[in-house]
Write a protein that binds this DNA or RNA. Sequence first.
RNA 1: GGCGCUAUCGUCUAGAGGCCUAGGACACAGCCCUCUCAAGGCUGGAACACGGGUUCGAAUCCCGUUAGCGCUACCA
Length: 471
Amino acid sequence: MSTPPRVRFAPSPTGFLHVGGARTALFNWLYARQTGGTLVLRIEDTDRERSSEAHTQVILDGLTWLGLDWDEGPLFQGAHADRHREDALRLLAAGKAYKDFMTAEELTAAREEAKAEGRPFRYHRAEVGLPPEETARREAAGMPHAVRFAMPDEELAWDDAVHGRISWQGRDLDDFIILRSDGTAIYNLAVVSDDVAMRISHVIRGDDHVSNTPKQIALYRALGHPVPTFAHVPMILGSDGKKLSKRHGATAVGDYREEGILPAAMRNFLALLGWSPGNDDEVLPLDEVIARFDLGGIMTKPAVFDTTKLEWMNGQYLSMLPAEELLAPVERELARLGIDPAGRDLLPVIEAVKARSRTITVVAEQVAARLPGATLPRDDKAHKLIDKLGDRFAINLGLAREALTAVVESAWQPAHLETVIKAVAEEGGLKLGDVMQPIRVALTGGTVSEPVHELLAVIGRDESLRRITAA
RNA sequence: GGCGCUAUCGUCUAGAGGCCUAGGACACAGCCCUCUCAAGGCUGGAACACGGGUUCGAAUCCCGUUAGCGCUACCA
């Protein structure tokens, strides 16, 4: 038994927790939980322009909402700027990096020139850069300089846990900057420095980082550290096959929370987006996902985020979860709707409507419609029914009201109410639906709901009779 | 442009040479159940990008083409 793995999730706080990031976090978390490893949360806040504390908090909240916890951190990359710099200087001292006195303007100009001539621009010490005497002059003059890594001409390959072997040639890569002219480290160096310091054994991250990996491997080697295992998980795309962005609607996990998606459903859906347990299972309990998760089961190709399937998944959870577990999110949603349940026991109401809803938002709306004093606008289908029935609508409703009024409070139970209504239909020689549907419209304003006798019970005797009379 | 990655139904995927006249799920259509809807059950349409190999045999292995995506910053 080897030492347990150490993995990390390292978001940069430059925006909300994106579903892609959330899934990367999920995969890291699953791997850590399954192997008894450690998950480190590291906030990569070295882009001071775009990073913010508010975003950090949103990301933390998002992870927590999803039920993902971490064992170490949050650690802030910015707090280790000194170590980053020391590593860069160590490389410089060892001759594995060098000073570059070229200014940003000169660089841009060189790049544009190359572009104009139609040749690829690659920064390599042997091809680009200032003449040695100019470098010496600027150094003597004490001008600011960046530090570039001297990319070795060697194969930089690794056995990716999801893709298999991936290989690059050092000669195709730039002598990239590791230290800015202001002395701060650049991403690739900071990441390697941190992953080494945090003893990260498995780097599980998005596919957009595969091209950073050879650079980082070169850095690990130059710094004299063993290279961790890399696992690059594919991107998540929008419905048009393009990278998921704002144009596709909700992309932040917070958006889905607002739309009434349950964390358990989101987790289940995300786990299956780009990873397969190997068989046809769809709705999988968390502990089973943890038990069955493996890096090799991660897809190699990007996946389209299908909101419809997410909602279906959420509907599955809504149906199977006990009303108790839905109470808190429903209350939260009700509060957002500005509705005060006034001490009413919501459990039976939630129980009555949850199977017919796909989101918590819809559950809350349905619950609200069953509370006293709810406004009940009639929908199109209701109007059509009324038109179709003509006089029968009011007549049948009247018959029902008469029979229902005779039912005393203590007998106001689903089973009894059903027999009462059936009796009304039978005595009047009416079709059951022609009696049930008007009641449903009177009670909800629409033509869709749980069985009418249950609906009557959930709404209660007084309120039901009041609504029927008002209709 | 260069480098890299990827390629099974509209979408998520099973498939790791014969079990595949390619299975499941979402979505869609129809039927059943039924007071409505949802759920559930049944049925249907729907895919191995293309071209070459290798092999007795290829969705599965190799090569090429095409397409998509990523990176190509003193961003992360």
